[in-house]
Design a protein around this nucleic acid. Structure first.
Lengths: 348, 348
DNA sequence: AGTTAGCACTCGAGCTAATAGAGTGCTAAC
DNA sequence: GTTAGCACTCTATTAGCTCGAGTGCTAACT
């Protein structure tokens, strides 16, 4: 028995060949295929011996006796960690992305959806995009608008011109002028802060400052708080869910239905994406996935920033037989350039 | 040959039995099944004779010689037009809907998504919901907010507290006070009008009225116009796309992929739904569908109103073998009560 | 005239057996 | 250490077969 694991260069080459070929074709890869298609200068018999070792060490799997080998999750893991060559994003994709950048998109939700579409179009996988976490963006302007006698709308504009609104039910009626004064005071005190920076001491001092408006301020601060709570789970945009159906591994409708079900659980996806935050590129392969229904998928996520702060995540879902290097390069490129797109919204 | 089409009561009963059974089981229905399961007081041989007529007239189809009959699109059409019995919405569904009504939902997009989820949950089909057309809703409040030296944000609040926002690039800088005055003037002139009522003569008279602010007003009215243009295609919310995979008729992955593809084309769905506007309940069966990829589906849509005006549409997509009466009753109930939900957003 | 029992006929679903071929592991020679 | 050769294994495909559901037609019955 060969208990010592000695991954020499030739074994690496063979493993890479198996993974590449299997990602390309989806069919188990045999020793003859490798010796013919990939120039290793050795015969299929030698390769068979090497493959036997690779299988013993768990990097590849034989679906049945008379079939070739397919990579295991462990094999893919080694591949993405050490073996994979990063590739540049393709020129035409670059151009298409630039063109999108030139388009006039003035709503953040449209932009997010457009980004999701681009990712799924570029990768041929299902894409996910989470909108910027509002807590980490800075307050730019607040405005109170009278709706009727007892209710007021609070509009909050942040950093990248993300607009949220909130109806506040007032105990005390307030007229337009009062609301304008209040809006000004709020702006003076809070502008430039991120929403998560608005804490209890700050709120107390605000109440004192507001003097006669104290009681109204209460409701308003509640509303701000409510905004934070509600927006704790960011909006999730999906695109290209149909792409999963392209892959024979999703021919089993029962399993595939479960995946589609998961994709509709936006909270689940939100937590999945938020875990990836701050990590740059993160790759989850098959069984590594925490969500049971996703254990036959791989997920790649990439976080993106506004003003140097990580505020959201983009990602793709595909079969474990995923074109990791391609997907990584695309996600990495888009995540690095997403802040430009977001800034463009601000420019009006 | 029997060229005269004489649809007597017994034939109707048999046709109804075939459709009911096929909707239930998805299997072709034989004459013996009908004579045993549905009490018609005649033998299978008699039913065979009648079925032969029904087939000749195109209401049912025999997939192959030794199979039972399945309804044709024409058969379903007759069924939904004349034969179908409307059924009351189930009690537990009613309760669940009421409970949703009690929940605090203060954003229109959340509400729309919630409604879509309810519909797909109730019907087990894929649901579509289009957000209220902003053009037909009335202006409640407009507010200009300064962002930076050269740009201003226009917030428009309409009827059901639907909020839209728009960044305006100004040629002339404008300070907070000017913007407040302008906001007030705009509100006085335009409040209560629907957006589509804001036409050229009105705009002209506004410009005169605004006097010294004339040049600024231009940009603002452009922005309003832009809002109308952009929001011409309403937002579409989908839920339960995975439900399609429940039905054996969508086992063919190639066709199903096409349907999923169509479901991602929001513009297409928007036009599909908008065509249904003003029509109350509308049923599109199989081949009747204009979209090729949808010719194996049936679609039911129902329009909904705000303040007596039709502003949007809800609907379901399923196999032609759809539980029409159930789906119709659910859509009809929800569409009739949707305005209550929308009003609740207004109440804060 | 309408209904029904009886029966031959058709055709798909599902089972079995046979075959072809891809790929392996092992052995012996290089 | 490498490789040619070969027996062996297992799947996928095909062909042939049977079974049974369902039909249409005919002849008898009411």
């Amino acid at each position: 028995m060969d208990f010592e694991m000695n991954l020499d260069e030739r074994k690496i080459k063979i493993l890479k060949a198996i993974i590449k070929d299997y990602i390309l074709t989806g069919e188990p890869v045999g020793s003859r295929t490798i010796s013919k298609k990939y120039e290793l200068g050795v015969s299929s018999a030698t390769i068979r011996n090497e493959m036997s070792d690779l299988e013993e060490w768990g990097f590849i799997i034989q679906p049945h006796t008379s079939a070739g080998r397919i990579p295991s999750d462990k094999g893919y893991r080694l591949y993405v960690d050490k073996l994979m060559e990063y590739q540049a994003i393709e020129d035409d994709q670059l151009r298409l992305f630039e063109r999108t950048l030139e388009q006039k998109i003035d709503q953040i939700d449209e932009l997010m959806m457009e980004v999701a579409k681009l990712i799924s179009y570029f990768t041929n996988y299902t894409s996910m995009v989470s909108s910027p976490q509002i807590q980490k963006t800075k307050l730019k302007h607040m405005q109170l608008i009278p709706l009727d006698k007892r209710s007021v709308m609070l509009i909050i504009v942040t950093n990248a011109n993300i607009v949220t609104n909130n109806v506040i039910r007032m105990d005390v009626p307030a007229d337009q002028d009062t609301l304008n004064i209040l809006s000004n005071m709020l702006n003076e005190s809070l502008r430039g802060l991120t929403i998560e920076e608005i804490n209890l001491p700050l709120i107390q001092s605000l109440k004192l400052k507001m003097g006669i408006y104290g009681e109204i301020v209460n409701s308003i601060l509640d509303a701000i708080d409510h905004t934070i709570q509600r927006k704790n789970t960011p909006d999730i945009y999906l695109s290209g869910t149909k792409n999963l159906l392209n892959f024979p591994e999703f021919g089993d409708l029962v399993k595939t239905k479960q995946i589609f079900h998961t994709l509709e659980e936006k909270e689940l996806l939100a937590s999945l994406l938020s875990k990836a935050a701050n990590d740059g590129i993160k790759i989850i392969i098959g069984q590594e996935n925490e969500i049971d229904e996703m254990k036959h998928c791989s997920i790649i996520t990439a976080s993106y920033e506004i003003d140097g702060k990580t505020v959201g995540t983009i990602g793709v879902i595909g079969p474990t037989r995923m074109e990791y290097s391609k997907a990584v390069s695309i996600l990495s490129y888009i995540s690095r350039n997403l802040d430009k797109l977001l800034k463009k919204i601000s420019d009006g």
